[in-house]
Amino acid sequence: MAKRVLVVDDEPNIVLSLEFLMRRAGFEVQVARSGGEALRALEGEPPDLMLLDVMMPEFDGYEVCERIRAKPEWRGTKIIMLTARGREAERERGLALGADAYVTKPFSTRELVEQVKRMLDVG
């Protein structure tokens, strides 16, 4: 059974690229274009991993992360935060809020895919 990945970003081209990469890696992909949409997507069956952009309208990535970590039933979802703001303070803030990894844009697609696979224990 394929692992499910939720891509959350408000930038259409980035969503497109991430969606392509995850599908190619063999995951089932779901897309959300804002924080609110992402939380709604979690309601049904939580994904195994989230690629979560930080700078988004409505809720930003930190808030989404915080809300997810507040709910015990969503514990299982791994979170990789993606951000175009590369400052150390923001990285630490993300990790403190419960993110499992923090990736700065632009990223190496190969490394990102590797990391996702590693985190989901997929060969």
Binding site: E11, N13, I14, S17, L18, F20, L21, R24, M55, A84, R85, G86, R87, T104, K105, P106, F107, S108, T109, R110
Partner: peptide, 25 residues
């Protein structure tokens, strides 16, 4: 500066991602 950085990185992310996708696929 942070905003400029973000605004620059966002298109760069797309450019790099798709370039790599084209190369790898």
């Amino acid at each position: 500066l942070a905003t400029v950085s973000h605004e620059l990185r966002t298109p760069l992310t797309s450019i790099r991602s798709f370039s790599e996708i084209l190369l790898d696929n």
